[in-house]
Design a protein around this nucleic acid. Sequence first.
DNA 1: TGAAAATGCTAACATTTGTTAGCTGATTTT
DNA 2: AAAATCAGCTAACAAATGTTAGCATTTTCA
Lengths: 199, 199
Amino acid sequence: MAKIKRNRNGTRKDVIIAKAAKLFREKGFSATSMRDLAEHVGVEAASLYNHISSKAEILQEICFKTANNFMSQIEEVDATPNKTAIEKIQAILRFHIKQMLENYEEVYVSDREWKHLTDPYLSNMQTQRRAYRQRIASIIEDGIRKGEIKPIDAPTAVLIMLHAVSGIESWHRSKKKIAGEVLEDNMVQILVDGLRKQS
Amino acid sequence: MAKIKRNRNGTRKDVIIAKAAKLFREKGFSATSMRDLAEHVGVEAASLYNHISSKAEILQEICFKTANNFMSQIEEVDATPNKTAIEKIQAILRFHIKQMLENYEEVYVSDREWKHLTDPYLSNMQTQRRAYRQRIASIIEDGIRKGEIKPIDAPTAVLIMLHAVSGIESWHRSKKKIAGEVLEDNMVQILVDGLRKQS
DNA sequence: TGAAAATGCTAACATTTGTTAGCTGATTTT
DNA sequence: AAAATCAGCTAACAAATGTTAGCATTTTCA
């Protein structure tokens, strides 16, 4: 009886996926039941299946939409001429942070819950994630070669960068939030120049 | 019929918890069933209950053992005199990294799956985690006051540090692992001094 | 306006879930 | 050697799970 309210510019499927993203973030994919989701959408569980074909499909949509988003951006950055490696890294970092602030639920879910995808989506996502990290590592190695970046292990640097950014989850939960731009500047500065005060 | 093999210096309960930690890391707490766990232990599901009282208890043991471990260490570091803030931060970082390398499964699980604890354990853990971050933030703020650390937002720095370290998960999965000590040095260096080459 | 499509509902299904009961045989303790 | 504890088993449970079938109502649009 209770219809799913559909915002302009969004299908009912979009509403379901948005609510699902929120629940998947809070409780995890496996611990979220379809009845749970239905209740938050304001509908009976069976009714969801008029809009989606399975629980798995919801996760797939969330993960691949997000992954494509990041892939597009890194290609854009990488293709931009006249950019130093440090600038490229900064651009990627800022994009990650902005995404984490603007599309928190979906970005978080696709980062933490992609393991629950099933093949062939699972392998696909693994490949995509590996490729993404590899591209960043290449930028860093390029920067090292050109003397802009310290000679550190590039994969380690990538690993630190990406996980540091995902820590914005704690920021979201925090009581005394600092402004988004301040957070962004702080994160980029700490990662690029470190904690220690240069004397 | 098939008995649980018990290593010297370990009860059968310990064996179960160790196997559980591995499964919880791979598939998550909710997606791991007791029958799953039993199979990996080499026993029927019902037999597990001769050693543990519930699935929830397993998660509790993993989480609180790990949390206590980290709490002890930070108290020790914090109480050590004649240490600069940077040195304290380094000590904490190295401890985290070492724990991640040595007790990977349990550290990972207690970091990622504690949300599935139930009250009162859940609230307890939340409090403990908040307190832990607060202690590190205080060290950083102290370092800022003394001019050892750049004037950045301390909670942001904590968030970066802790999540960066948890990225060692990717290192574990990586094909071409660098040595543990090299990883440790790289991580500490990047976090403390940043990516950019000082000119 | 009337037909087609979309969206909701209730009921039910087959599995899977965590856990308990009750039993048998082994191991330890006295 | 007898008694007590430990550690495994099979069978079963109640609840929760994802999903489908079948039907009613509303919305869309020709």
